[in-house]
Design a protein around this nucleic acid. Structure first.
Lengths: 170, 170
DNA sequence: AACAACGTTTAGTTTTTATTGAACGAATGA
DNA sequence: TCATTCGTTCAATAAAAACTAAACGTTGTT
């Protein structure tokens, strides 16, 4: 008992799925991630792996890995359907929650990694400056100043990303 | 008459350059972009193409193209040195300006493209809904509703990105 | 137990992106 | 004019990423 979707509806759906793929690809996440999310987002019912394979025309392996990516970004969630041992998935429809729990997290991590690396360089330079004559120290100071400006900026960004106001706005 | 930079200084510089490469790569911009910016950022004097080639150990072609990328992002600017027809480059040290004029711009464009695509799908679906019986229209309505939520979110993001307050915070 | 239906992992392939060497044209100055 | 020094472009290559088919382990069914 499958619903015979109308042609114009399917046409629109496919356009949206393609648009989703293009968008995620332009942001450096894969193409399939966007297509898969778009498909689920417009679907009234949760879909299983093979549904998705059929609709998108990609391999089961790709769907399996992509679906887990999307789960990590809180863009898709697994749902249980009674009396069926297949895994079903549905899209998160609250984009704000999605950004807060998924993308922003990833972003924060990368920013932190960058900040930590600045810190390491700063420290190793500071230690090196102690055992050196004044001429050399002066040359190093220029670099030390720039490093500090970089770290200042990092802390500014860090502050913004962890500001509850941001979460509230999304 | 070249300055004989001290060993510890150079060591720190190289670490920073490597860190820069890792960071930009993790964000999906190339590795060289980050290395090149980091090199210029810690350099007291502007550098020419061949200086950069020498320091980073990459081809002139790569430096040429990457430097133009960075110029577009307002991360690097060309400076003239009197009596030398080589092009010299220096880093933008104001990270805020850099984000405002470079990265945010790129980001905005991608978001706009995505938004436009949603609009297209929405319109084609709306038009299709006019010439269809009630049963079909009801099925389409579910999809139409989700599309509208997607567009609402897009407009929220659009508003945030174009809010002067953001620029002011950076 | 043997089988079938799933989702995952792995190893290999295809596709895309990054990087380079070499050729080129413009500008400089002998 | 000719030779040189630059930066860019372009075709080719190397490196990375996306994608797949097939094998696998698990879970449920007969």
């Amino acid at each position: 008992m499958s619903t015979p979707s109308s042609q114009p509806l399917d046409a629109a759906r496919r356009k949206f799925i393609e648009a989703g793929g293009n968008t995620t690809q332009s942001f450096g996440f894969g193409r399939i991630a966007g297509q898969l999310f778009a498909l689920l987002y417009l679907s009234a019912k949760p879909l299983c792996l093979d549904d998705i394979v059929r609709e998108l025309g990609v391999s089961k392996a790709s769907v399996s890995t992509t679906v887990r990516q999307l789960e990590q970004w809180a863009a898709v969630r697994r749902v249980w359907v009674k009396g069926d041992r297949k895994d079903y998935y549905e899209a998160e429809t609250d984009f704000g929650a999605m950004l807060r729990h998924g993308l922003l997290m990833t972003f924060r991590k990368k920013v932190e990694t960058a900040g930590a690396q600045i810190g390491l360089v700063e420290n190793s330079l500071k230690r090196a400056m102690e055992n050196v004559d004044d001429a050399q120290r002066q040359e190093m100071q220029v670099v030390a100043d720039r490093l500090q400006r970089a770290r200042d900026f990092h802390e500014k960004i860090h502050g913004m990303l962890n500001n509850p106001v941001i979460d509230h706005l999304l």
